[in-house]
């Protein structure tokens, strides 16, 4: 095996894992802090992608279109929390079904609004060379974006008043209530942040995965598995799992076929759940 090929595989697998992580973080935050599995996560990602796309079409530069997408998805997420999710707290599976139904509505809504095909914005035409191999630069940049997003969420949860309250609400719910933390507002914000992260993912991944009504499906499935395998430690657990599963699947696909890569992903998920029935981070002492 030539070293340049190996280096290329490792680098691009890391980028695949980072893409998975970016797409999953919102799901992880909502699950980790609220115990809610949002099955419409993929559709929020799609909404983010379409928001960013529409913004660029009316002349807003792509870099500024990303925050626009985040704001729109946060807004929709907040509304969804108030109208649907809030009424179903503590009913994990009911929430899953309701958000799935919501996903169907969003999906068909996107078809109505945008039709079945929309022009993509294309990938920046930069590449880097390693020996004989050339790699598209934008997917590699996702490694930095994933690290940045992770750091941002970490700081948000550890260094802001909201973050303190949010963590207090899950770690000591009774105490949090006793000292007057309004958990329903915190939850609304948490859900909105989760969907905002989905919107961010949709927008930032737009050059890699073009906006289509059903784009979120496979990200949601893999993201969902990643979050559950990760277990209760939302950030570090998810990051580690995304690198292990996503990167592992990508390396497997590089040396074999993408179908075996998929099979690896699912088998590794099953194996990890078998070894760690409550998620890999269930016995960790850290909380984020």
């Amino acid at each position: 095996m030539e070293p340049d090929y190996l280096a290329t595989v490792l680098l691009s697998s890391l980028s695949s894992a980072s893409i998975l992580l970016i797409a999953t973080l919102g799901l992880a935050v909502v699950y980790g802090l609220m115990g809610v599995i949002n099955l419409a996560h993929g559709e929020f990602l799609m909404v983010g992608a379409y928001s960013a796309l529409t913004a660029t079409q009316i002349g807003i530069p792509y870099v500024l279109a990303i925050p626009v997408a985040v704001m729109i998805t946060m807004l929709i997420g907040g509304v969804v929390e108030v109208l649907v999710v809030r009424r179903l707290y503590g009913r994990l599976f009911d929430t899953m079904l309701a958000t799935w139904g919501l996903g169907m509505v969003f999906n068909q809504g996107a078809v109505l609004l945008f039709g079945t095909v929309s022009p993509g914005i294309g990938m920046p035409q930069y590449s880097i060379r390693i020996g004989e191999f050339s790699l598209a630069a934008y997917p590699l940049a996702m490694i930095a974006v994933a690290a940045g997003t992770l750091a941002f969420v970490y700081l948000l949860l550890t260094r802001t008043v909201y973050g303190m309250k949010a963590r207090a609400s899950i770690q000591e719910p009774e105490m949090a209530q006793a000292i007057g933390i309004d958990s329903s507002r915190i939850n609304m914000l948490t859900f909105a942040i989760g969907t905002g992260l989905a919107g961010f993912a949709g927008a930032v991944l737009l050059p890699i995965i073009p906006a289509t009504p059903s784009m979120g499906l496979f990200f949601a499935v893999k993201g969902f598995l990643t979050v559950v395998v990760a277990g209760p430690v939302a950030l570090t657990g998810t990051a580690l799992t995304a690198v292990g599963l996503g990167g592992g699947a990508s390396v497997t696909a590089s040396f074999m076929t993408s179908v075996i890569g998929d099979v690896f992903f699912f088998l590794a998920t099953a194996l990890l759940l078998w070894l760690y029935p409550l998620g890999i981070s269930s016995k960790w002492r850290r909380k984020l």
Binding site: T8, F219, S250, A253
Partner: peptide, 9 residues
């Protein structure tokens, strides 16, 4: 599949 890097390599 959404990850095309392996194929491109």
């Amino acid at each position: 599949v959404t990850d095309y890097a392996p194929t491109i390599q």
